[in-house]
Amino acid sequence: MQKTQRLNRFKQLWPFYVLAAPGIIYFLVFHYVPMSGLVLAFKDYSPFKGIVDSPWVGLTNFRDFFSTSDFVILLKNTLIISFLNLGVYFPFTVLLAIMLNEIRMLTFKRFSQTIVYLPHFLSWVVIYGITISFFGPSGVINHYLEQWFGGGANFLVSNEWFRPLVILQSIWKDAGWGTIIFLAALAGINPELYEAAKVDGANRLQNIWNITLPGIKSTIVVLLLLRLGSSLDSNFMQIFLMSNGLNLDVSNVFDLFVYHIGLEQFNYSFAITVGMFKSIVSLILVVSANYAARLLGEEGIF
């Protein structure tokens, strides 16, 4: 009896398993099989011996990594870019959202939104190309620096200019797009608050300070925590394109190091060790960020 019931249930449900199968296989093959590849961090991988037969080396790879000067430099470079984004890009996005929100002419507001959202959809290579057109040795900026001050700068191949350029690119590409979530939060603020403030004789700046900012506080907090949680993730595409031999002192971040060690020098085990360190610390950071958001009474990310 129970058997037929189960059979009936299977007859009813099998289409769902068929529909889910390709997706599940995808996640297993392209996400979970790579996770199993992390065992190579504990081995001295040699392509001739294969994954299974390469000898175990315990934590040697980790010990080697933490004892090199590379580790400190990578950590420093990665964190500096993350914190510059946090300190410059993020406030700029909030400010831009508030300014867009203050525009009262609807057509002008919509027009500016159309303009500032667009760069988000361009590829990093296109942004890199535009950057070269303007900041390259024969680019627009250098042309005018020569003309007005008699000398240009090697923006693309110098340690000093790498970070400012990267932050500038991030702002140009994504600050407009980043306003969307704040604009949505701003739309949710009760208009009666502004009416009441008007009766009290508050001016626009006071309104922004006393009503608008508190209204998007929780969004700001959650996004800030989220960004802190991903401090070790640099925008790899961008860094990869902008880095070169002459600015490697400041442009070398974890992901780039993994690329150079793993795919250019074929030292898989060591590259995987570095990648694994990053993945685990990121996992801890993201979970902590979520926990912190909940502690603060926000909804959290998951």
């Binding site: 392209f30 199993s36 995987i272 993945s279």
Partner: peptide, 16 residues
């Protein structure tokens, strides 16, 4: 969901 917060990384994916 777990793939949202943890991943094998560049090299293991490359090897796959």
């Amino acid at each position: 969901f777990f793939t949202m917060i943890f991943h094998g990384g560049m090299i293991p994916s490359y090897l796959v």
